[in-house]
């Protein structure tokens, strides 16, 4: 491979990372808003949030990307820049999976904690911010870490729409060289390295957050993997 082709691959890496960071931010925002809404006391809020997760988890990320690229522009007159269209589709889809993680994490906090918050006459917002989230968030990190790797894998889908990410630059190199084994091996290795780094970072984050919560969290046994069928859409039951 020539250096020009490597430059192409590096540009692809850069687009993939941009897309990953932006859609991870959007997905995190969506998961917390929707996940907290699913524990709201008004049934209509719970229903709408549940409807959102069912729809976005029910459909395929690639179909969602097609929809954002082809149906939104003529239907609503929005023409999004490819990077934002990809961010929107991935963020909304993976946010729906994240919402299930947030809901599960909030439900796993012992009910006595919520009751103590009520007894101290905290407002619902204070209860969430000061009592529930600090305990729930460290427990959410391992499933979020899996989801982040799934999101990284999901970013490859935008190459189908002709966006110049890593997978797309791989196709260009294949066409230039008329040879595919080498470039696709490199591609898979690059994705693997990024995924590896992401899991390392998330593990460090988990340790840091857990240090702030007193009391030892229960170890996750083999049962944990079989127990949570609801989350297992993409990011769920692994590890």
């Amino acid at each position: 491979m020539t250096s020009g082709l490597w430059e192409l691959v590096l540009q692809g890496v850069w687009v993939t990372i941009q897309l990953l960071v932006l859609s991870a931010l959007l997905a995190t925002a969506v998961s917390f808003v929707v996940g907290v809404a699913r524990t709201h006391r008004l049934w209509i809020v719970r229903f709408l949030a549940g409807f959102y997760t069912e729809v976005f988890r029910g459909t395929s990320a690639l179909v969602m990307i097609f929809w954002v690229f082809f149906v939104l522009p003529p239907a609503f007159g929005w023409q999004l820049v490819p990077l934002w269209a990809g961010t929107l589709a991935l963020g909304l889809t993976y946010g729906a999976y994240g919402a299930e993680i947030v809901r599960g994490g909030l439900n796993a906090v012992s009910p006595a904690q919520r009751e103590a918050g009520i007894a101290l006459s905290f407002t619902p917002w204070q209860r969430l911010r000061l009592v529930l989230l600090p305990q729930a968030v460290p427990e959410m990190i391992p499933p979020f870490s899996n989801l982040l790797v799934e999101l990284l894998k999901g970013t490859a889908l935008v190459s189908v729409m002709g966006m110049g990410d890593l997978a797309f630059s791989g196709n260009l190199v294949r066409l230039a060289l008329q040879e595919s084994a080498e470039i696709y091996t490199y591609l898979l290795l690059i994705y693997f390295v990024i995924a590896f780094l992401l899991t390392r970072v998330m593990r460090g984050l988990e340790k840091k957050l857990k240090a702030g919560v007193t009391g030892k969290a229960p170890e996750r046994g083999p049962e944990a993997e079989l127990e949570r069928p609801e989350v297992a859409g993409v990011g769920g039951a692994v590890r």
């Binding site: 790797v149 990284l152 894998k153 999901g154 970013t155 490859a156 889908l157 190459s159 189908v160 997978a167 791989g170 196709n171 294949r174 595919s180 084994a181 696709y184 091996t185 591609l187 898979l188 994705y191 693997f192 995924a195 590896f196 692994v238």
Partner: peptide, 17 residues
Amino acid sequence: FVRNTPLLVQLFFLFYV
């Protein structure tokens, strides 16, 4: 390795290689 790399790229790999 297979779990942490995109299915799309794996499909391209199988399809072209």
